[in-house]
Every structure is written in structure tokens, then in C-alpha cells.
Amino acid sequence: MSFEFINTHLQARLHDALLRKRHQVQHATARKITINNKTYLNFASNDYLGFGDNAIALNELPALGSHSSALVTGYQVQQHALEQYLCAQLGYEAAMLFSSGFSANSSVIKALFQDKTVAQHSAVFQDKLNHASLIDGALHANAALIRFNHNDMNHLRARLEKSTAQHKLIISEGVFSMDGDKAPLSELLALAKQHNAWLMIDDAHGFGVLGKTGLGSCEALNTEQLPELLVITFGKAVASSGACVLGSKHFIDYMLQFNRDYTYSTAMSPLIAGLTLARIKAIKTADDKRAKLKANISYFKQLAKQHNIAVMESSTAIQPIVLGCAEYTLNVANKLKKYGVWLTAIRPPTVAHNTARLRITLSAAHTKHDINHLVNSLVGALV
């Protein structure tokens, strides 16, 4: 029977406690979420600063749709203004917007290594915990894919020294989405310079939160130190959607010629671009929200330690508890729902086999009472 493998694979996922389902959300904020008419404390959102509920006022509302590709008639003043602002703030010459972070990450790598004639002279070095979009981009690029152990600079150095590639691209996340730890940015930059390689940083979970004014993992760097490629997304701390790739004018001009996702996709909505720019300007001065988030992270870690809850080493809003077994992790997540806590059970293939986890995300919107309830619920569920 045709396509019977579909049912076979679905049954296998169900048997292994790995079957994924969607939940229809009736209402959600960084603090609370309502599903099936029941409201939970929300510890699964990436709205780290709690900006999602804040209204944005614009003097004039742009059009909802851009109506075409950016290379046809879709590149409008709102997209240009957002790109220029980000370039000025982050220290880059040029930028290009994408409608999703996944598209930005994967397409940039594919486009950079689109030339088959240089494939044998090209290599992409990726942290083993990099996001699926980064791995997928490299798998479809005309370059060798070389993985190095997570945040292991000695392993990366050995890989670079062994490589004979002329064109080398090192890729890391600024803040790792499933572990919550940060990349050793200064060491990555030093290794890239030493081996005549480019560095690409995906700062999806750092932008808006890290840095003195929320500009992310690279804010403290001067212009001469910046990674050659920086990807930021707007669906986390910015509480919007879409992404931006920043680099030299030369590089962005190259992307405009060879990036198929950009060429053949309808451009980002002018309305989204205008609203996102206004939100980023607000983030620049959101020192109180960043301070509140930092305090909440510290408070949660303190309580977790008091109750012997083994949280991973992370100083960011992402606080994972690795439980190992996928079925057990799913059961704990379901128990937490009974306590009024919404948490996601992260299971393979999103994370490695035997590393299923509860991915707790904290927000500036959470109160101490919320965090107390979370920890008490974890104590009751982790039995």
C-alpha cells in the first residue's frame, strides 16, 4: 500500500514517547497561557522581557503585506529603515531581512557555498549543539561539514589545524537554545582570526537580553572584533517575528545574487518591520526589564538549589532540567499541567538521545510568587 510508511513512523514515535502535537492557544502572555479554557503559568515562552503584551503606537500604519519579493517591489521604506537602524546599532555595513530565523540561518549558509567549483576547498565548522536551521544549511551547502564538541575550543582548534580548506566558516549560537549557556565568543573570534576563517553567530536568544542595552552577545565588541556574519531574530525577546542577517556590503550584495530563499520569498511585511523597529528602540532603554529578568533567574536558581533540583549551568533565561528518559519527561510535564504550570517536554530529535528535558524559560513578567509555585510544582512532579 502506498505511503504506508507514514503510519509506521507515527506509531514508532508514539511508542517511543516522541510524538509531537500542537496545542491551540486561546490567549498567551509571557506570564500566563490559556489552552482549552484552562489558564496556566507560562514557563515555555521565549518572550524573555515580557514585551508581548505591550502595545506599539505608530503614527501611520504601513501596509500589512509587501506583495512581492524584496527584489521585485517588496522592499519598502519600513524594511530599509529597520535594516539601517540595526546596522548603525550593531556596527555592520549592510543587512537583509527574512521572515523567519530558520530561513535566514539555513539559506545564508547554502548561498555562501553555492559554488560547486570551490566545494573541495570549503568547510563549515559547527558546534554540535547548533540549531537545526544551521545544521540543515550546512548539509545542503557545497562544503564539508565538520562538527566540534559543544563549546570545546581545543576540539575546534584541532579541527581547524587539520583542515586544508581555503574557505572556512565557524558557526555558533550566542546563547544555545536548549542548554541556555553562552558561546565563548572571544575565543571563537581569536581562533577564526588565527586560522583565516569567518565566524557566524546566531544570536536569536541573546538579542534583546544580553549587553548593556540589549543588543546581544556582540554588543561589547568593537567594530574590528565583530563576527563576519551575525543573525538576529525578532521572535524571542523582541516579541515580534522575522530575522535579520548582518555583514559587510560585499557579503550582502553576494546574498542578493545567490540566496534563493530571499529571492523567491515574499518580503517581510512592512507592518511587521515598522512595529519591530519601534519595539527594538524600546528594548534599548528597557534596563528595568533586563534587571527584573536577571533577578528572576537568580531567584529561580537559588530555590532550585535549595530543593535539590538539578538545573543545568546556565545564567540565561533558559533553565533546562535534563531528565534523560523521554517518557518520564513527558509524564513530568503532564503532572506540572495539573499544578497549573505549562512547560514543554523537549525530546529527541530536538535534543540528543537520553537527554530529554524540561526547558524552563523565565521572563521579566514572572513574579516571585510564580517562581515559588513553579519550584513547588517541580518538587511534586519530580518523583
Score class of each variant (00 low, 15 high):
residue 1 M to H: 07
residue 5 F to Y: 13
residue 8 T to I: 12
residue 10 L to E: 12
residue 13 R to T: 00
residue 17 A to K: 07
residue 21 K to M: 11
residue 26 Q to P: 01
residue 41 L to W: 00
residue 42 N to I: 00
residue 48 Y to M: 05
residue 59 N to Y: 02
residue 63 A to D: 14
residue 67 H to P: 00
residue 72 V to Y: 11
residue 82 L to Q: 06
residue 83 E to K: 12
residue 84 Q to V: 06
residue 85 Y to C: 03
residue 91 G to V: 00
residue 94 A to L: 05
residue 96 M to Q: 13
residue 98 F to H: 10
residue 100 S to Y: 05
residue 110 K to E: 15
residue 110 K to F: 03
residue 116 K to Y: 07
residue 116 K to V: 12
residue 121 H to S: 13
residue 125 F to E: 00
residue 128 K to S: 12
residue 128 K to P: 00
residue 132 A to E: 11
residue 134 L to P: 01
residue 137 G to V: 02
residue 146 I to D: 09
residue 152 D to W: 06
residue 163 S to T: 00
residue 163 S to R: 11
residue 164 T to L: 13
residue 165 A to P: 04
residue 166 Q to G: 02
residue 180 G to A: 04
residue 181 D to I: 01
residue 187 E to C: 02
residue 195 H to F: 15
residue 197 A to F: 10
residue 198 W to F: 14
residue 224 E to Y: 06
residue 225 Q to D: 14
residue 225 Q to R: 11
residue 231 V to R: 14
residue 232 I to C: 12
residue 240 S to N: 06
residue 245 V to P: 07
residue 246 L to P: 06
residue 250 H to F: 09
residue 255 M to R: 08
residue 269 S to K: 08
residue 269 S to P: 10
residue 272 I to D: 10
residue 273 A to K: 06
residue 280 I to A: 06
residue 282 A to Y: 10
residue 290 R to E: 02
residue 291 A to W: 09
residue 291 A to G: 06
residue 292 K to C: 08
residue 295 A to T: 14
residue 301 K to F: 02
residue 302 Q to K: 15
residue 305 K to L: 13
residue 307 H to L: 03
residue 310 A to G: 06
residue 311 V to L: 15
residue 312 M to S: 15
residue 313 E to Q: 14
residue 332 V to W: 02
residue 333 A to H: 01
residue 349 P to A: 08
residue 349 P to M: 09
residue 350 T to E: 12
residue 356 A to L: 05
residue 357 R to D: 01
residue 361 T to R: 11
residue 362 L to H: 00
residue 363 S to V: 03
residue 368 K to A: 07
residue 376 N to E: 13
residue 382 L to K: 11
